[in-house]
Protein backbone atom coordinates (compact mmCIF):
# COMPACT_ATOMS: atom_id res chain seq x y z
CA UNK A 1 0.00 0.00 0.00
CA UNK A 2 0.95 3.64 -0.42
CA UNK A 3 0.56 6.42 2.10
CA UNK A 4 2.26 9.76 1.53
CA UNK A 5 1.72 13.09 3.23
CA UNK A 6 2.72 16.53 2.01
CA UNK A 7 2.52 19.59 4.27
CA UNK A 8 1.02 21.72 1.50
CA UNK A 9 -1.35 20.67 -1.26
CA UNK A 10 0.01 23.58 -3.30
CA UNK A 11 3.06 21.51 -4.24
CA UNK A 12 1.06 18.75 -5.92
CA UNK A 13 -1.14 21.36 -7.61
CA UNK A 14 1.95 23.05 -9.02
CA UNK A 15 3.43 19.75 -10.17
CA UNK A 16 0.24 18.94 -11.99
CA UNK A 17 0.26 22.37 -13.67
CA UNK A 18 3.81 21.58 -14.79
CA UNK A 19 2.89 18.38 -16.64
CA UNK A 20 -0.77 18.48 -17.61
CA UNK A 21 -0.26 20.47 -20.80
CA UNK A 22 2.07 17.77 -22.08
CA UNK A 23 0.51 14.57 -20.86
CA UNK A 24 -3.12 13.52 -20.47
CA UNK A 25 -2.63 10.31 -18.52
CA UNK A 26 0.36 8.58 -16.99
CA UNK A 27 1.53 6.13 -14.35
CA UNK A 28 2.76 7.44 -11.04
CA UNK A 29 5.25 4.68 -10.20
CA UNK A 30 5.45 4.37 -6.43
CA UNK A 31 8.01 2.31 -4.54
CA UNK A 32 9.91 2.53 -1.27
CA UNK A 33 12.24 5.21 -2.60
CA UNK A 34 9.52 7.58 -3.77
CA UNK A 35 7.19 8.45 -6.62
CA UNK A 36 8.37 8.73 -10.23
CA UNK A 37 6.65 9.66 -13.47
CA UNK A 38 8.01 9.30 -16.98
CA UNK A 39 5.73 10.22 -19.85
CA UNK A 40 5.97 11.47 -23.41
CA UNK A 41 3.62 13.84 -25.16
CA UNK A 42 1.44 12.27 -27.84
CA UNK A 43 3.77 13.32 -30.66
CA UNK A 44 6.86 11.79 -28.96
CA UNK A 45 8.72 15.08 -29.24
CA UNK A 46 8.86 15.91 -25.53
CA UNK A 47 9.21 13.84 -22.38
CA UNK A 48 8.63 14.73 -18.75
CA UNK A 49 10.40 12.89 -15.93
CA UNK A 50 9.32 13.65 -12.41
CA UNK A 51 10.88 12.38 -9.18
CA UNK A 52 9.52 12.91 -5.69
CA UNK A 53 11.83 11.25 -3.18
CA UNK A 54 10.35 9.42 -0.20
CA UNK A 55 12.22 11.63 2.28
CA UNK A 56 10.44 14.70 0.93
CA UNK A 57 7.20 13.35 2.43
CA UNK A 58 6.38 13.00 6.10
CA UNK A 59 5.46 10.26 6.52
CA UNK A 60 5.98 8.12 3.42
CA UNK A 61 5.18 4.45 3.21
CA UNK A 62 5.09 2.19 0.18
CA UNK A 63 6.07 -1.43 0.65
CA UNK A 64 6.03 -2.63 -2.96
CA UNK A 65 6.07 -1.33 -6.53
CA UNK A 66 2.72 0.25 -7.20
CA UNK A 67 1.95 1.88 -10.56
CA UNK A 68 -0.95 4.30 -10.18
CA UNK A 69 -2.54 5.00 -13.57
CA UNK A 70 -3.92 8.52 -13.37
CA UNK A 71 -5.90 10.70 -15.76
CA UNK A 72 -4.45 14.13 -15.08
CA UNK A 73 -7.60 16.00 -16.08
CA UNK A 74 -9.50 14.01 -13.44
CA UNK A 75 -6.79 14.55 -10.82
CA UNK A 76 -6.85 18.26 -11.58
CA UNK A 77 -10.60 18.39 -10.90
CA UNK A 78 -10.11 16.83 -7.49
CA UNK A 79 -7.09 18.97 -6.60
CA UNK A 80 -9.17 22.09 -7.29
CA UNK A 81 -11.08 21.04 -4.16
CA UNK A 82 -7.94 21.36 -2.01
CA UNK A 83 -6.80 24.60 -0.41
CA UNK A 84 -3.23 25.59 -1.22
CA UNK A 85 -2.24 25.42 2.43
CA UNK A 86 -4.09 22.17 3.19
CA UNK A 87 -2.13 19.16 4.39
CA UNK A 88 -2.44 16.54 1.66
CA UNK A 89 -2.38 12.79 2.18
CA UNK A 90 -2.64 10.30 -0.68
CA UNK A 91 -3.35 6.63 -0.09
CA UNK A 92 -3.76 3.60 -2.30
CA UNK A 93 -4.12 -0.07 -1.48
CA UNK A 94 -2.18 -2.75 -3.37
CA UNK A 95 -5.13 -4.13 -5.25
CA UNK A 96 -7.38 -1.10 -5.19
CA UNK A 97 -8.67 0.79 -8.18
CA UNK A 98 -8.87 4.18 -6.50
CA UNK A 99 -6.51 6.79 -5.10
CA UNK A 100 -7.69 8.35 -1.83
CA UNK A 101 -6.92 12.02 -1.35
CA UNK A 102 -7.42 13.67 2.03
CA UNK A 103 -7.19 17.45 2.42
CA UNK A 104 -6.87 18.71 5.95
CA UNK A 105 -6.98 22.37 6.88
CA UNK A 106 -4.02 23.51 8.95
CA UNK A 107 -6.00 23.72 12.18
CA UNK A 108 -7.57 20.32 11.38
CA UNK A 109 -11.14 21.55 11.71
CA UNK A 110 -12.00 20.67 8.13
CA UNK A 111 -11.20 17.34 6.54
CA UNK A 112 -12.27 16.49 3.01
CA UNK A 113 -11.84 13.11 1.39
CA UNK A 114 -11.99 12.26 -2.30
CA UNK A 115 -11.49 9.12 -4.33
CA UNK A 116 -9.98 9.23 -7.80
CA UNK A 117 -10.64 6.28 -10.08
CA UNK A 118 -7.40 4.72 -11.29
CA UNK A 119 -6.86 3.29 -14.75
CA UNK A 120 -4.62 0.70 -16.40
CA UNK A 121 -2.06 2.51 -18.52
CA UNK A 122 0.42 0.73 -20.76
CA UNK A 123 3.36 3.05 -20.62
CA UNK A 124 6.50 2.65 -22.64
CA UNK A 125 9.52 3.46 -20.55
CA UNK A 126 12.37 5.06 -22.43
CA UNK A 127 15.96 4.44 -21.44
CA UNK A 128 17.57 7.86 -21.19
CA UNK A 129 21.35 7.54 -21.37
CA UNK A 130 23.57 9.38 -18.90
CA UNK A 131 24.92 12.19 -21.01
CA UNK A 132 27.86 14.54 -20.63
CA UNK A 133 26.47 17.71 -22.14
CA UNK A 134 28.62 20.24 -24.01
CA UNK A 135 26.87 23.22 -22.46
CA UNK A 136 25.14 23.44 -19.08
CA UNK A 137 23.46 26.77 -18.36
CA UNK A 138 21.93 27.63 -15.00
CA UNK A 139 19.70 30.70 -15.03
CA UNK A 140 16.68 32.34 -13.44
CA UNK A 141 13.54 30.33 -14.22
CA UNK A 142 11.51 33.53 -14.42
CA UNK A 143 13.92 34.96 -17.00
CA UNK A 144 13.67 31.76 -19.08
CA UNK A 145 9.88 31.98 -18.93
CA UNK A 146 9.93 35.60 -20.04
CA UNK A 147 12.29 34.91 -22.95
CA UNK A 148 10.08 32.06 -24.18
CA UNK A 149 7.00 34.24 -23.91
CA UNK A 150 8.62 37.23 -25.61
CA UNK A 151 10.13 35.30 -28.52
CA UNK A 152 6.88 33.40 -29.11
CA UNK A 153 5.60 36.76 -30.41
CA UNK A 154 8.09 36.46 -33.25
CA UNK A 155 8.20 32.79 -34.21
CA UNK A 156 7.20 29.28 -33.21
CA UNK A 157 10.87 28.24 -33.22
CA UNK A 158 13.71 29.35 -31.01
CA UNK A 159 17.44 29.09 -31.68
CA UNK A 160 19.75 28.74 -28.70
CA UNK A 161 23.45 29.51 -29.13
CA UNK A 162 25.80 29.02 -26.21
CA UNK A 163 29.36 30.31 -26.21
CA UNK A 164 31.67 31.13 -23.34
CA UNK A 165 30.45 34.72 -23.47
CA UNK A 166 26.83 33.90 -22.91
CA UNK A 167 23.62 32.25 -24.05
CA UNK A 168 21.66 33.78 -26.91
CA UNK A 169 18.02 33.00 -27.63
CA UNK A 170 16.77 34.14 -31.03
CA UNK A 171 13.69 33.90 -33.19
CA UNK A 172 12.95 34.89 -36.74
CA UNK A 173 9.49 35.20 -38.27
CA UNK A 174 7.22 37.12 -40.62
CA UNK A 175 7.15 40.26 -38.47
CA UNK A 176 10.93 40.37 -38.21
CA UNK A 177 13.32 38.91 -35.71
CA UNK A 178 14.43 39.22 -32.11
CA UNK A 179 16.98 37.94 -29.70
CA UNK A 180 17.86 37.99 -26.02
CA UNK A 181 21.43 37.42 -24.85
CA UNK A 182 22.32 36.67 -21.25
CA UNK A 183 25.96 37.14 -20.39
CA UNK A 184 27.64 34.87 -17.93
CA UNK A 185 27.24 36.96 -14.83
CA UNK A 186 27.53 38.88 -12.95
CA UNK A 187 24.65 39.50 -10.56
CA UNK A 188 26.60 38.79 -7.42
CA UNK A 189 23.99 40.60 -5.35
CA UNK A 190 21.15 38.43 -6.56
CA UNK A 191 22.22 34.82 -6.81
CA UNK A 192 18.79 33.82 -8.14
CA UNK A 193 19.25 36.09 -11.15
CA UNK A 194 22.77 34.98 -12.11
CA UNK A 195 23.52 33.08 -15.31
CA UNK A 196 26.30 30.50 -15.13
CA UNK A 197 27.65 28.54 -18.06
CA UNK A 198 29.75 25.37 -18.06
CA UNK A 199 30.98 24.91 -21.60
CA UNK A 200 32.95 22.10 -23.24
CA UNK A 201 32.03 23.14 -26.75
CA UNK A 202 29.83 25.83 -28.29
CA UNK A 203 26.34 24.62 -29.20
CA UNK A 204 23.61 25.85 -31.53
CA UNK A 205 20.20 24.20 -31.43
CA UNK A 206 16.68 24.93 -32.70
CA UNK A 207 13.53 23.99 -30.78
CA UNK A 208 9.79 24.36 -30.96
CA UNK A 209 8.83 27.21 -28.63
CA UNK A 210 5.43 25.71 -27.93
CA UNK A 211 7.04 22.97 -25.83
CA UNK A 212 9.27 25.39 -23.94
CA UNK A 213 6.15 27.30 -23.01
CA UNK A 214 4.67 24.08 -21.60
CA UNK A 215 7.90 23.47 -19.65
CA UNK A 216 7.86 26.95 -18.13
CA UNK A 217 4.62 26.06 -16.35
CA UNK A 218 7.09 24.60 -13.82
CA UNK A 219 8.47 28.07 -13.04
CA UNK A 220 6.64 28.38 -9.67
CA UNK A 221 8.40 25.20 -8.50
CA UNK A 222 11.94 26.60 -8.60
CA UNK A 223 13.68 29.96 -8.93
CA UNK A 224 16.34 28.32 -11.12
CA UNK A 225 16.29 26.28 -14.30
CA UNK A 226 19.20 24.32 -15.79
CA UNK A 227 19.45 23.86 -19.57
CA UNK A 228 21.78 21.02 -20.62
CA UNK A 229 22.64 20.86 -24.31
CA UNK A 230 24.80 19.16 -26.90
CA UNK A 231 24.49 19.68 -30.62
CA UNK A 232 21.90 17.48 -32.37
CA UNK A 233 20.55 15.77 -29.23
CA UNK A 234 17.52 16.50 -27.02
CA UNK A 235 17.84 19.36 -24.55
CA UNK A 236 17.34 18.62 -20.86
CA UNK A 237 15.43 21.35 -19.01
CA UNK A 238 15.52 20.76 -15.26
CA UNK A 239 13.70 22.37 -12.35
CA UNK A 240 15.00 21.13 -8.98
CA UNK A 241 12.51 20.84 -6.15
CA UNK A 242 13.90 21.82 -2.74
CA UNK A 243 14.64 18.68 -0.71
CA UNK A 244 12.17 16.65 -2.76
CA UNK A 245 13.37 15.79 -6.26
CA UNK A 246 13.00 17.31 -9.70
CA UNK A 247 10.94 17.93 -12.80
CA UNK A 248 12.95 17.24 -15.97
CA UNK A 249 11.84 17.81 -19.52
CA UNK A 250 13.51 16.50 -22.66
CA UNK A 251 12.80 18.03 -26.05
CA UNK A 252 14.05 16.73 -29.37
CA UNK A 253 15.71 19.40 -31.51
CA UNK A 254 14.59 20.57 -34.91
CA UNK A 255 17.16 19.69 -37.53
CA UNK A 256 18.02 21.00 -40.99
CA UNK A 257 16.57 23.71 -43.19
Amino acid sequence: MLEARLPQAKLLKSLLEAIKELVVECNFDCNDSGIAVQAMDSSHVALVALLLRADGFDPYRCDRNLPLGINLTSLNKILKCAGNEDILTIKASDDGDVLNLVFESKDSDRISEYELKLMDIDSEHLGIPDTQYDAVVSMSSGEFQRICRDLSQISDSIVIDVTKEGIKFSASGEVGNGSVTLKQSGSVDREDEATTIELQQAVSLTFSLKYFQYFTKATPLSSRVVLSMSNDVPILVEYKLDNLGYVRYYLAPKIGD
Binding site: M40, S43, H44, V45, A46, L47, E124, H125, L126, G127, I128, P129, S157, T206, S208, V233, P234, Y250, A252, P253, K254, I255, G256, D257
Partner: peptide, 14 residues
Protein backbone atom coordinates in the same frame (compact mmCIF):
# COMPACT_ATOMS: atom_id res chain seq x y z
CA UNK B 1 11.67 25.58 -42.00
CA UNK B 2 13.26 22.71 -40.13
CA UNK B 3 12.30 19.15 -39.29
CA UNK B 4 11.11 18.17 -35.87
CA UNK B 5 12.90 15.06 -34.65
CA UNK B 6 11.22 12.48 -32.41
CA UNK B 7 12.59 11.39 -29.05
CA UNK B 8 12.31 7.79 -30.26
CA UNK B 9 15.32 8.58 -32.49
CA UNK B 10 17.45 9.26 -29.40
CA UNK B 11 16.18 7.20 -26.48
CA UNK B 12 15.66 3.46 -26.33
CA UNK B 13 12.26 2.05 -25.52
CA UNK B 14 11.81 -0.94 -23.22
Amino acid sequence: SSNQKSLDDFFNGS
